[in-house]
Amino acid sequence: MNDTQLPIWEVFHQEKRGAPHVHVGAVHASDEEMALQMAKEQFARRLDCVNLWVVREDYVVKTNYEDPFFFARNTDKKYREVHSFPSPLKGKRRE
């Protein structure tokens, strides 16, 4: 019987309140309760942790590393960046 190949859950770990949830790996588990238990044992046994997320791996939608166009910036989009507007207030003070 196939009993060692349980579904895969991606694990996201939050170190402290205010910190982002960071992907740390994956566990095998039959349901979400077991997935959280496994994630706690595997990833929160020593490091500080206040919150864990587990997400079924087959629900994660991914971009393709091989697609060169998805993240390409063909046009100048500097107007989106903060650095396009260096110190707007400097020398502009009106009495």
Partner: peptide, 19 residues
């Protein structure tokens, strides 16, 4: 350990069912 794995393999929630 087989009986433990078999018990664990029974998903208790609908999210355990493969997508």
């Amino acid at each position: 350990g087989r009986w433990v794995r078999q018990a664990l393999a029974v998903a208790k929630s609908k999210r355990g069912v493969p997508a």
